[in-house]
């Protein structure tokens, strides 16, 4: 039983770490500010999400394996869910605030083609 949770949590942790590093590479490699926002987006969603889900599996393992009903591991699980929730609510908000502040200050995005085409 425990090994199942371990495998799930390790898979999540490793893939989450991978996406976090890819987002970090993206933030360094991408050419201009607005595209770098997307690199930050990768680490904030799948990177952070999978790492936290991996930790949740560890907490759930502690909860399932403990003799009888112990509150401790389940509280840890609840706190991890809250951290994930806050990250998923606040990170796009600050990302949007950052983009709109940059646009207000007149930072123009580098567009590849179809300049300012009013689609629809």
């Amino acid at each position: 039983m425990g090994i199942l949770f371990d495998i799930l949590s390790w898979t999540c942790l490793v893939t989450g770490s991978f996406f976090a590093v890819v987002g970090g590479i993206g933030i360094v490699r991408l050419p201009d500010f607005y595209t770098r926002l997307h690199g930050g987006g990768i680490t904030d969603t799948l990177g952070a999400g999978l790492v936290l889900v991996g930790l949740m599996f560890q907490a759930a393992k502690g909860g399932v394996l403990s003799a009888g009903f112990e509150a401790g591991p389940w509280l840890v699980l609840g706190k991890l869910v809250m951290i994930l929730f806050f990250l998923l609510v606040t990170s796009p908000t600050s990302c949007h605030a950052l983009a709109s502040a940059a646009l207000t200050n007149g930072l123009q995005p580098e567009l590849s083609e179809k300049k300012d085409e009013p689609s629809r």
Partner: peptide, 24 residues
């Protein structure tokens, strides 16, 4: 998840096939 995998692939490709644009 799908979008993440797509963007991650593009970031890791050496020539970076991106096509930034503004839409409404």
């Amino acid at each position: 998840t799908l979008a993440n995998i797509d963007i991650a692939k593009r970031v890791l490709t050496p020539e970076m096939p991106i096509n930034p644009q503004m839409i409404r």
